[in-house]
């Protein structure tokens, strides 16, 4: 199975994402922001970073990249897409996911190992977790406070589309402790934490709790 990893100018975690995919048995296919070409991949990973420097709203420029004009309809048609950190911000800007990510409540960039609860284990990227499972993943961002209007929030909650919540102290002041959400179909998932930094014992965060994301998508693609 082939999973695309998108590189925008300023993308930083693409190497890590590709490595995590390879470790899970997938082929990582580099996708370039300026190409109108998804290269026939079976799923797409939008990694973190500071695309275009994030000098405007995070992700606001990336959504207009040529690659995104291909990705948006493909995601709407069911292509599995995972966005982490800046990838999550881009998914919100592209309106594949509702709401927005704004400046952390503490006004500082935060890099730490964060407790997270999986509240939805039915998406394309979380099927190998169990509902209510508590895991640890690194967070590292300055603009990760999830916000949405009351109606959107109520709909997300009532339809089980809040996929991840922070446990312990909330690192950024996110509404309802939301760390990640999915679209109605469950194929597009965005979250602020970084599963790609938690797949090896030697490096990254303590533990390998990020592996579940990659095993989930690989199993889904194999079964499909």
């Amino acid at each position: 199975m082939r999973v695309g990893v998108v590189t925008f100018p300023g993308t930083l975690d693409d190497q890590d994402a590709a490595r995590a995919l390879r470790l899970a048995g997938a082929e990582a296919v580099p996708l370039w922001h300026a190409d109108h070409d998804l290269k026939g991949v079976d799923a797409v990973f939008l990694p973190g970073g500071f695309s275009y420097g994030d000098y405007l709203r995070c992700g606001a420029i990336s959504r207009f990249a040529p690659l995104m004009t291909e990705l948006v309809p493909a995601a709407q048609a069911g292509l599995p897409v995972l966005g982490t950190c800046n990838g999550f911000q881009i998914l919100c800007e592209a309106q594949l996911l509702p709401g927005a990510l704004v400046r952390n409540a503490g006004l500082h960039y935060v890099c730490r190992d964060q407790g997270i609860r999986v509240d939805n284990a039915t998406t394309a990227w979380t099927a190998d977790f169990s509902e209510g499972q508590e895991i640890t993943l690194p967070v590292k961002h300055g603009e990760g406070r999830y916000v949405a209007d009351a109606g959107t929030l109520a709909e997300l909650e009532s339809s089980g589309r809040v996929v991840f919540r922070y446990t312990g102290s909330n690192p950024n002041g996110s509404l309802n402790d939301i760390a990640g959400i999915t679209n109605e179909a469950g194929n597009v998932v965005g979250l602020m934490p970084h599963p790609e930094h938690a797949v090896e014992e030697l490096t990254g965060a303590p533990g390998v709790d990020g592996r579940g994301f990659f095993s989930s998508i690989v199993r889904k693609l194999v079964d499909a």
Binding site: D13, R19, A20, H108, C111, R112, H194, L202, G204
Partner: peptide, 14 residues
């Protein structure tokens, strides 16, 4: 201080 720095990026920090 150090929580404001990304220590994980590139995936090779031991």
């Amino acid at each position: 201080v150090t929580s404001q720095y990304d220590r994980y990026v590139r995936g090779n920090t031991v």
